[in-house]
């Protein structure tokens, strides 16, 4: 009969894998523009790198970080952002999907909408920024005198991934807000890109109200600074103590859950269930 006999059905994971593989293949076809885009992203990231260098050309310490520590934070942040941009970057096309009605075609497919959007493309080239992050990270790790323990090593390994999760959660929340606000993509991207910028610095740089925001509602401090502070054994400023860095994986997961909840509310609103 029809597709309701579950005995001969292909697994759900295989379904996503096929879509992703297809997108990857079609991307690698355009090699020259791919290379150019990656080059541009790398060069753009270098501008941020130049900023760090310029600051430390003028002062030996910013916040509570010296140049080596600042590079560590910068590397972790950019690496995490590169991963998130690559994997979940599609979420910034949500306003387009809503406007063109593509979102409605997603609603008549037997897959969750968020999964469809995330797997609708995986743009490898968006990782460009992450390349600079990886290189910086490696250099910084070599330069920083860390008293390595298994716990610290573990935290450091997890940080890029949790950073990526935090950014992905931000992208998802920003995408979810598109269901309520009209033409608000620029407003929400100001928070996601602002968070990315803020995550490159020590929390001590920011005035207390902003610092609290970066540790709670928009947890950019957990992307790089707090875990780095925990690994380096820094005390950290008021309201953002280095010890908080040990909670990074938990915060990342919590942020994802919160973002998913907001997303579900958004889809309900879009389909009118919320009223």
């Amino acid at each position: 009969m029809d597709a309701s006999c579950s005995g001969d059905r292909v697994g759900a994971v295989a379904a996503y894998r096929t879509v992703l593989a297809s997108r990857l293949r079609s991307q690698l076809q355009y090699r020259t523009s791919f290379a150019l885009y990656v080059l541009t992203s790398v060069v753009t990231a270098l501008a941020g790198f130049a900023e760090v260098l310029t600051v430390f050309h003028n002062v030996p310490v910013l916040g509570d970080l010296d140049l080596r520590a600042a590079l560590l934070v910068y590397g972790l942040s950019t690496f995490g952002f590169g991963i998130a941009n690559c994997v979940a970057g599609q979420l910034d096309t949500i306003p387009t999907y809503i406007r063109t009605g593509t979102l409605e075609t997603m609603l008549v497919r037997p897959q969750p909408v968020l999964a469809q959007i995330v797997t609708s493309d995986v743009t490898l080239r968006r990782f460009g920024v992450g390349l600079v992050g990886v290189v910086t990270l490696v250099v910084a790790l070599a330069a920083n005198p860390v008293h390595w323990t298994p716990a610290r090593a573990g935290l450091l390994l997890v940080t890029p991934l949790s950073g990526a999760l935090l950014f992905a959660a931000l992208f998802t929340a920003a995408g979810a807000l598109q269901f309520w606000l009209v033409d608000a993509s620029e407003v929400t991207s100001s928070f996601t890109y602002g968070a990315q910028y803020a995550s490159q610095f020590s929390a001590a740089v920011f005035p207390v109200p902003l610092r609290l925001l970066l540790v709670t509602a928009v947890p950019a401090a957990f992307v790089a600074y707090l875990p780095a502070a925990a690994v380096l054994g820094l005390t950290g400023p008021r309201w953002a103590p280095g010890r908080l860095g040990w909670g990074t994986p938990v915060v990342a997961v919590a942020a994802c859950l919160a973002a998913l909840a907001l997303w579900r509310l958004g889809v309900r609103h879009y389909t009118g269930a919320g009223g």
Binding site: A3, T100, G101, E104, T105, V108
Partner: peptide, 30 residues
């Protein structure tokens, strides 16, 4: 939908069928 497309715009038509078959989890034999 007459006014909207469910196909993947920049891919060959055949690819859209393959993707939809995967999304609906249909094995090749079906």
């Amino acid at each position: 939908f007459g006014q909207r497309s469910q196909l993947w715009w920049d891919l060959p038509l055949e690819e859209s069928f393959r993707l939809l078959a995967a999304i609906h989890r249909l094995p090749p034999a079906r």
